[in-house]
Amino acid sequence: EHADPLLKVTIIPRSSGALGYAQYLPKEVFLRTQSQIMDIVCMALAGRAAEEVFFDRVTTGASDDLRRVTELVYSTIQVYGMNSRVGQLAFPKDPNAAPGDKPYSDATAEAMDEEARRVVDEAYARTVELIREKRSEVESVAAMLLEKETITHDDIYDTIGPRPFEGDAAYQEYVSKRQGDKAKEEETEEEAVREEESKAEEEEDKGMGSGGLTPGLACMDVPR
């Protein structure tokens, strides 16, 4: 529900070495709840989970996603005080600290590691379950992406329908604008079709008016 809406995704490799990229609608959010962060974690784990569900093996493609997941989850534990076991404590990273220097005990560090692993495992299990539940939708989007190589929010909307959640004001505004633009495009296309049909009818009427003969021959005397 709280994951950023997808605007565009491509599998065309980039010069930076990336195998593609995804573009999302940014949210002007300054505060996030724990459930919102966990939705983002699940979204980041979706690529790795899809590999397991569809191919029964994993690749190195999710390395950047896993790095992001690790940072987010450890932040909830070490910085935001969102873990009941560690408690309402914050240990932000000190860039000037010496290697191995930390303001907490080894026991606390071990608890943080265990909690981070537990949280990620639960999020991963939730993501795998969701992908299995929505397997047909994932396959439809994947097939379209393989065919077109680049797809947009509108393509996904037309293929599997709207998001099951309303989204924030920015997303609703985006969808409303896109629907308006699409309606204008369809209206323009319909007008073009009507013009072509009108021209075809005019040409047909001209042909019938000359008795179906080639222009210039209709007025010639035919020998008897």
Rank of each mutant, 00 (worst) to 15 (best):
F91S: 08
F55C: 07
T152N: 01
Y157K: 05
G161M: 03
E166W: 09
F55K: 07
V128S: 04
A170Q: 11
F91M: 09
T70E: 05
R135L: 14
I77C: 00
G87D: 07
T70S: 11
A170K: 13
A123R: 03
Q78K: 15
Y74W: 08
T152L: 09
P164W: 15
V128G: 05
V73W: 01
I160G: 05
V138I: 15
E133I: 04
Y124R: 12
M144C: 03
G87S: 10
M82T: 00
T159H: 02
V128P: 03
L145A: 09
S105W: 12
N83M: 00
S136R: 14
K102M: 14
D158W: 02
Y171L: 12
E115H: 13
F54Q: 07
L130H: 11
Q88H: 13
Y157S: 02
S84M: 15
A169Y: 05
D158R: 10
A170P: 02
T127W: 02
L89G: 02
E166S: 11
F55T: 03
P95N: 06
E166Y: 07
I156D: 00
Q78E: 13
K134S: 10
G61I: 14
P99W: 15
V79K: 03
T152M: 08
D158P: 00
L89T: 12
D56G: 02
S75F: 00
V69Q: 04
Y157L: 12
F165T: 11
V120R: 05
G167I: 01
G161Q: 02
A107F: 14
V128E: 07
G167T: 03
I156N: 00
L66P: 03
A170V: 14
L72M: 15
K93L: 13
P99T: 06
Y157R: 10
G100N: 05
G81C: 09
N83C: 13
S140E: 10
R132A: 07
N96G: 01
V120N: 07
A170M: 11
P92T: 11
P162L: 09
V69N: 05
R67L: 15
G167C: 03
A143Y: 05
R163P: 01
G81M: 10
D158N: 05
R117M: 01
Q88C: 08
A169V: 12
L72Y: 03
E129D: 12
V73D: 01
E137C: 14
G81L: 11
A116M: 01
T59V: 08
Y124D: 01
P95V: 09
R132E: 12
L89A: 14
D121S: 13
V138Y: 15
Q78L: 15
T159I: 13
I160Y: 09
